[in-house]
Structure formats: C-alpha cells, structure tokens
Design a protein around this nucleic acid. Structure first.
Lengths: 202, 202, 202, 202
DNA sequence: CGTTAATCGAGACGGTACGTCCTGTCTTCGG
DNA sequence: CCGAAGACAGGACGTACCGTCTCGATTAACG
C-alpha cells in the first residue's frame, strides 16, 4: 500500500528517498487526533499535516484518501489478542469478547472501536477493515473448532454464523450502544451463554 | 420531535406558521438524494435546499444538523413490519429478519440500511435512531415472549441478548457486509436456526 | 412621502389607520442606532424593527427602502440654523460654517454629518438630501446677497459658485477628513477669509 | 501595500508564491464590474471571484475587505494628470479641475469618481484614498506655489485652504451633484475665477 | 351594533452574500 | 526527487438580512 512498494527491489528510486520520520509522524498525528474524540469525517487532512509538522502533499503522496490513512493508522495499533487458556470454550470466548467489548488499553481501544464503526460505511475500505479484524475473527473460529474437536460443541455447528452471533452484538453495543437495555460490562458472558445454550426449549 | 410540538395545544405560536409544504419537500429531497447513492456526509444541506426549492434557513430553522434531518427523513419512511402468522416462532423470526436483510421496497430499503450504518457514529443521534428501529425490535421481542408462553422457547430465555443475537448479525451483514463468507440471502434462516438450537452439544 | 398623504383629504381611508406611535418609534430607533456609530449600510431594517418593537412590514409599508427611511429620520432632526447677527458678512459666514464643521449638539450632529456623507452615493436620494440641507444653503445665499446689497461684497459675485467654495470644503473635511493638513477647528475662518480675499495678487 | 512587501528583501517567503495572474484578474474584475454601474456595496466578493475565475479565499488572502480591494483596484488606474503648460496659473488650474470634473477616459473616470464618493464613508480607508488622490493634490499645490513665485498669486496665500476651495466643489458636484444649480461643464472656469478674484469688494 | 377592511406584532418564506474552512492539486525553495 | 510551506480553484458550511408573505388580533369608520 505505501509507496515503498517497489517493482524492482534492486533498482532504488532516484532522488531523495521518502522520510520514515514523516510517515511515523503522520500516523501518530492521526491516532492522537482520533484519541481526542474527533470523528473520522471531522478529522481533516489539514489538521493531520499541521499536527505532524508535515506538508499536505507528503500525506497525499502516500495515501490516496483520508480513510485509507486512517485504516493504516488503526492497523498500526496491532491490537493484541488475549491469552487463551484453552481449558474451556466458554472461558475463551468470553475472554475474546471482552477484548471487543471493553478494551483494557483505554485510549487506543476507544479509537479502535470508534473507527471501526465509522469505517463501515465505505465499502471500498472494507478490505482493509477485514485485514485489521480478521485475526480476531480467526482466533474465535479456532476456539470454536477446538470446541467441536473436544466434543464440547455440536459437530454440525454453523461456525460462520456462530461467529456473527458472538461478535456482532458486541460490536454494535460497543460502537453504537445498540440496545439501551444491555450493559456492556456483563454482555460477553450473557452472549456466550445464550449462544451456547440456544433458545429452544430442551 | 417535529416543529408542531406545542406546550399548550390551545395557544398557537405567533407569527406565520411553518409551511408543511416546505417540510414535506425537504424530507422528500433528502430521500431522493440518498436514493441516488450519496452518503450522508456527501449529502450537503445546500443540495437538499436546492432540490427542495427552499432556502437553507428553512432547513436550519427546523433541524439543527444534517444528521437529525436525515433521521427524521428516514423515520418518515415508516418501514412496514411483515405480517406475522404466529404459527411458529421460527417462521416469524425468519420473516422479521428477512425485512432487515432484504428490503422488498428496493430504494427505500437501500436508503434505510445505508443510513442506519452511517448514523451509528453519532451518539447524540442514537435516541432518534432508537425511535426508528424500536418498533421492529419490539415486534421481535413479542415473538420471543409468545414463544415462551407457548412453550416453544425455554422459560429462562435472556430475551434482550437473544434480540441482539438475532438482529445484530443481520444489520452488520446488511450494512457493511461484515463477513465475506456469509450470504445475505439465506442468513435469516441460518441465524434463527443457530440461535434456536444453541452451540453446546446436546 | 408618508402614506398619510391623501388625494382627497375629506375621504378617510377605510380600515385601521396607521399607528403614529409605530412611526415615531421607528424614526427614534433609526436615530438611536445611527447614534451608536453604525453606518447606513450596516444598519439593517431588521435591527430597526427589533429596536422599535415593530414588525418589518410596518416599516416597509411606509418606506420603500432603508435609505429613504434614514433620510426621513435625519430630516426629523430639523437641524437648527445659528442666529445670524447680520453685522458683518464674515462673521455670519463663519457662524454658518461652524454649524457644518462642529455641530454643537453632539449626538445629533454626529449622526447628521455621518449620514450626509453616506447618502451622497445614491442619486435617487439626492432630492431628499437637498430638502434637508437646502435651508442651510439658502441661509448662506441670503448672507451673500445682503453682503452685495451692503456693498461689502463685489456686485458681480458668482453666488452659486461661492456657496460651493464655502460649504464643500467644510463638508468634505467634516465627513471624510479630506485633507490631513487642515484642522477642522479653525477651518471656518480660514475658508471665509480665503474666499473673501481671493488668491490673485492685488 | 501589495503582498510583495518584504521585511528582508533577500529572504523569500516559504511556500508557493502568490499568483500575479490571479491578482491581476481580480483587479480587472473589480474594475469591469464597477464599470457596469454596480455600486460598491452591491459589488459582492462572490461576483468578483466568479468573474475573475478565482476562489474567494484567493481574494480574502490579499485584501481583508471589499473596500480595500476596491481602493487598490482604483489606485491601479493611475489616473493621469493633464499636461500643464505652465504659462498661466488660471489655465493650469482649469486644466487640473477639468480632469476632476469631466474625465476624458469615460469608463475609468466614471468608476473613479463614483468610487471616490463611496469610499468617503469609511475612515479606515482614508489612508488609501489619500494615496490615490495625493498626486493630483500635489500637482495643484505646485501650480499654486509657482504662481506665488511668479508673482501671479498673493504671497500670503493659504495654500492648503485654497486647495480645498478649488477641489472640494468639483468633487462634490461630480460625485453627488451637490448643487442642482451648477453645471459641471463650465464649473472649472467659474471656480477658478471665483477663487482667484475673491468675494470682497475691491 | 355588527360588518368590513387595513393595520398591528410576529415571524416564516425563497434568496443572496457573507467570511471561514477544507479539499485535492500545484508550485516554489532548500536539502 | 523529496521535504515543508503554502497558494490555487472550488465547494459547503452556518449566519445574517433582504423584501415578501401569512398568520391571529386590533382598531376604526361604515352600513
């Protein structure tokens, strides 16, 4: 994505090479500004350039649009996955959902989930969005697969749908407080329990 | 909500009353413009005014911001609920989710879900958003309650969480195609079945 | 000029007669606002209506434009002429010019001369402007005529041009401080003396 | 005055320099629009920008207000002084006043005097106004001084006041047709003669 | 004495322009 | 060629007034 992609790795581009310092400063500036509560659309390229002490052209030379810059900045956060103990499917799922629901690392997590919600509107960006969240989804899938192997979960489980049942309510509650009747604090447990036990009468 | 709110219903406000024609034209203009594919942020108040044949002030007099205008316009769509046969919980839930997933009325539905996704970022607007979707949520709740009464669903069902399990995946898939591996066409059935049966081994 | 002009004085117009109170309040409001230093173009009809406690239509019903309203308001000041002693042409002219140069009645005079300068740009208003200043011009003419009769001034004096020589420098200095090298304080004497004595060598 | 003012002439300002083309186009647009008869207050910055094919910011970057822009545009006209034969004070003064009274270059002259009258109301602009008319004033002063040296004019002449006597009536008659009884055509001669001969009886 | 009709206040109407901000591109200089 | 700095054309913002219009409520003289 960045311009440091080169067709021929031997052949260095002529002229002055791009400054890694500038790139770093831009990413930092985006994260700092998003951390102060500005929405993506209120985040202007101009303010990023000013905060980073960088010319606007230096930004546009690297990223074609504000959104892609934001995605790259967010991706740089490399949000960590929790350590999964692997002892019980329920515990692992709750641990994973907790990361979605209540980021322990305050500022970064806030930025993260705020940005996630905002990125959703642009279909072109969804590939990048996937890139950022796919690791977490894959981790969840792995837990489900292990649960099936271990006999804890039903063998004919619809893994992809179950993934949605688990994560979508957390994301929507986190980003837009979808239901006023649900508390984010105990939501992971309640979601996991509901998904595991099912609604139909035994 | 609308400008016709009055503290004392007997006492008319002084001065020339606000034009219902203008109000109508503005709402229509918003829906038409959103129908052409413009995103909320690309939707300028100026273009709405021009399309409606109205001064900008006439818009700002009624709605403090573009977002609130959009919510009101969307609310005016009064999206219809499906007829629920009431014979089986599964069928009713699938019918409800289908409305979320694949709006039969093309343009309006497109506008609707596009807007929903975009509104999510503004916490101040959530009250309005609730107003628009609450009827649908309440209808779903009612189906769950009937299912419990009829003995089809377990008596200790966590209704609010189950609501989230059902609706959140549909909304996220509809608005942002959250999972590339899921097809919106058969998602209602798969979600309902997964929620009803549960993940844990019998 | 006002709508109370009637073709047939016997025949009263039907309907509610116009309120003299409103008319008075409007004129007062204009003068008060001009007195606070606002220029004519910065003086909005809206602010006049608000200050007078009157609807905008009540103003537009009487005066077709802001400018005509201002002229009428200024004319209402009925700026007083000084008492002319009639003993010497020089003294009388100086007394008249002093009124132009340094209005003794502070606020009203300030409004007056400020407005004069501003009205000049609109040719349509000049008739009204004349109406306001003509009395002062006529008084000056009279002094010149008396001077000729008394043998103080030359018999072939070009009265209209001399009027201009006397008044124009005062007005321009007063309204736009035309020459930075001239002090408004002693200008009346210097102008009168220069006009009386002439430039050519004796 | 212009943006090319520099504190240190060696040190160029950083960033892209301001476009002389844009500056030129703006000035031209102002003069063209004023030439069509629009008054200064009816001259909108928006219309100037449109006519010049320039963004509004490009105008506001250079001039803080419409008025200062107009003054600069008018100053750019560099209104020419007549050739002074220097043979007789009377002839030279008449020639100078003719330029004030009846500009030979129609459009520009019309713009000029129209603008002069309009600028008078803003004291802040007077410095600029001076800059524009000072050359003409200085030329007139020079004629008077030469007349004194040559013995044509009285040695104790009040030059500044005489300047006012000569120019103010012309300006007021030109810009606001101050006296309905005076014809602009023969005014220069009449004014000069009146000033030279004086009013007092010989 | 009840019409009739113009006026009152209030304020909304379709517009125009304001001056600011930001967009994405460009043009300059020095490194 | 990249760096910052910042100007460029353009477009939208939200505000302030313009001059007109609609309201319900007054306020007279006329019938």
């Amino acid at each position: 994505m960045t311009a440091t992609d080169v067709v021929d790795p031997d052949r260095r581009a002529p002229g002055r090479p791009r400054s890694a310092r500038a790139e770093q400063a831009i990413i930092e500036a985006v994260l700092e500004l998003l951390g102060t509560g500005v929405s993506i659309e209120a985040l202007s390229v101009e303010s990023v350039a000013a905060r980073a002490g960088v010319g606007k052209a230096t930004i546009y030379r690297r990223w074609p649009s504000k959104e892609e810059l934001v995605v790259e900045a967010v991706a740089a956060l490399k949000l960590p996955l929790p350590d999964l103990r692997g002892e019980s499917v329920r515990d692992d799922l709750v641990a994973l959902l907790r990361v979605t629901g209540q980021e322990p690392d305050r500022d970064r997590g806030k930025v993260m989930s705020c940005v996630m919600a905002q990125l959703s509107r642009n279909p072109d960006l969804y590939g990048w969005y996937q890139k950022v969240i796919e690791p977490r989804r894959e981790a969840t899938r792995e837990v489900l697969r292990r649960g099936i192997s271990a006999g804890e979960l039903r063998a004919d489980l619809d893994i992809e749908v179950t993934l949605g049942l688990l994560m979508a309510p957390m994301i929507m509650q986190r980003s837009m407080r979808w239901s006023p009747r649900l508390d984010i604090a105990d939501l992971p447990e309640r979601v996991v329990d509901a998904v595991l036990s099912g609604a139909a009468r035994q």
